[in-house]
Design a protein around this nucleic acid. Structure first.
Lengths: 344, 344
DNA sequence: GTTAGCACTCTTAACCGTTGAGTGCTAATC
DNA sequence: GATTAGCACTCAACGGTTAAGAGTGCTAAC
């Protein structure tokens, strides 16, 4: 069976209505609200066809219809009208850049807040992925006789700092020499290329403090691993309570528990690293607990290096047009902002 | 009317039972479970007295009794048996110190997680309050031609770092001189003493870069303000769903929204800065939204300088003995750990 | 002072008819 | 042949009634 123009119109009407009401949509409602000069009976016939084709389904015999994930997919790909941001939205988004901070983490944090505030969905932003940036300088700064600060400056302006213990008999001249050596060695490499073997090369050159070098290696590798894992910023997690489908305590709980599992979120979202906006609808999600949610995601970058992922999570009956336009706009402007900050 | 020994026994039985069941406790239950050789009828009489005295109340005529906040207060102050930690609990708490990190924030984060995991309540830990530590050194480290890292090393080993913009014509020698000057000026002062006026003294000495100095002042003051406000670490926020009294979606939502308001939490909890464990029960809370919750809090310190606050939030029918013993133990051991790390 | 007995209260769960929204089918209409 | 009015049918939701159960308070006996 073909999807004629009228079927598409009706499908769109059902989706639009369901997205905003959350209640199954009946033929009468469509005839009245989206009146296109046909009677409820005709609409019923069409809807029956649409159900057979897998675009709609009924929760029970005497209820209206609900769009399936397949319908949302069609909607997002073909039917949806791209929506412009309102002036108020654009204005609100500017908040991100107002503080003019040079710390990428602060920007990201603000992005999470703004995304969820504007859309009333839950926002997730992954921190910059270190494996995609280049190391520019490594520095060891003595803090006191016991500790030093290990500073890694990258091409994205990200400064990864860890405090490490230093042996008592190490002086700042020595730390300086080590810093220089590390910098020479790793300049313009990625974190992935910083492997232990190559560090042992350096170690050979600097036999004097074997033990110290080991702890340095530990700190470097651990700090990379750590950062890679868990930098997940959330916004508006309690927004989920706005949706009647989450009135059920068990569902709300499952959702919020999922949001607490940062590592799971990270592994789910870090996959989407292609540019542009990606929409994952309900059962398209691989993760079992997300089968009733949709994700609208994009990436952010400095220049053309993709740094991380940002997006929205909500029920499958999401206002896709709004979500997509907001996510796209924020993703693009954040990338521009970061590029202007860090790209020479 | 006096609280005789038997009344206390009965009150304790009601509290114990209610804490673990969450259901109003009837006279029969007490006679059976906590049998002290008296009949339900006698217990009824005693309970009636206890109600008159304000220790118990009934949700409705034909229901059992529920302890009032006054009863919990008595329980916590007099009745409660101090409980030892189990071996498993003590073992689990060791996790905090295993990573042997020298970063206080990492420790705090781990504390929040461990507290909530062990107790199944929601944990709140306030980050170290900068106004209580002494500045040891201020350093400006050039990152690239545009940015420098402003590093403040304190007596608590806390390193506050902010990236600031520097003018193009500033060289590293100049930054060094400024660092030294700031360090000399502020060594052994608290953040509260770093005020703009005194900074302007320094500015006079360093007229060459007025503009730069202003941005430095901004960065310093803002970074202090920022840190003071919002360093709140949470653990186990969804634990609240374990309690039947939070089956009600509106209650759960109110609780979780409260937990999202970090600044409110901060202002609520930062008041408790005396040593030892503090318990605030239900309506004893000043904050309206917390009138149905209890807080069990303590402080953590380095040496004898109190740094911050940590604790648990749960329903008023909290397992106080467990909560208090866990919070006390964690507070003490964390303080010891931090002291061993940072105190010379 | 304590307790058995009993009437009373109030919540909770189950049951059941009613209502209303919405469908699918059929037959008439355009 | 597509469209539509009409109608019987289905099913969730709502409200009212009832029965069960938990617990009390009171009274009278121990």
């Amino acid at each position: 069976m073909q999807l004629g123009k009228r079927k598409l119109q009706i499908l769109q009407a059902v989706i639009d209505d369901y997205i905003c009401s959350g209640e199954p949509v009946g033929s009468r409602t469509i005839a009245k609200k989206y009146g296109m000069g046909i009677s409820p009976a005709t609409i019923r016939n069409e809807m029956s066809d649409l159900e057979e084709m897998g675009y709609l389904h009924q929760p029970h015999t005497s209820a209206g219809r609900i769009p399936s994930d397949k319908a949302y997919r069609l909607y997002v790909d073909k039917l949806m009208k791209t929506r412009m941001l309102t002036a108020a939205e654009a204005e609100y988004i500017k908040k991100i850049y107002e503080q003019r901070t040079a710390e990428i983490e602060k920007v990201i944090e603000q992005v999470a807040k703004v995304l969820s505030d504007i859309t009333n969905y839950t926002s997730v932003v992954l921190g910059p992925q270190l494996n995609k940036v280049l190391i520019k300088r490594i520095e060891l700064i003595p803090v006191d006789w016991q500790y030093a600060l290990l500073l890694v400056v990258t091409s994205a302006g990200i400064i990864k700092d860890t405090i490490i213990r230093i042996p008592a008999d190490v002086d700042s001249g020595y730390l300086n020499r080590v810093s220089n050596m590390l910098t020479v060695h790793y300049r313009n490499k990625t974190f992935a290329e910083v492997d232990i073997n190559s560090i042992q090369d350096v170690q050979k050159e600097m036999m004097r403090q074997k033990e110290f070098f080991n702890s340095l290696v530990d700190a470097l590798t651990e700090s990379i691993a750590q950062k890679e894992q868990t930098e997940v910023y959330l916004g508006g997690t309690t927004n989920i309570f706005n949706f009647p489908e989450y009135r059920d305590i068990m569902k709300a709980r499952a959702f919020l528990s999922l949001m607490e599992q940062k590592d799971l979120l990270y592994s789910l979202l870090s996959k989407f690293d292609k540019k542009g906006v990606t929409v994952v609808i309900g059962t398209e999600n691989e993760c079992e607990q997300m089968k009733e949610c949709s994700i609208v995601m994009t990436t952010y970058s400095i220049g053309d290096k993709v740094l991380g992922t940002m997006g929205l999570i909500g029920p499958t009956r999401m206002e896709y047009s709004k979500a997509v336009s907001v996510v796209r706009y924020v993703g693009e402007t954040v990338s521009k902002y970061l590029t202007s900050l860090f790209e020479e």
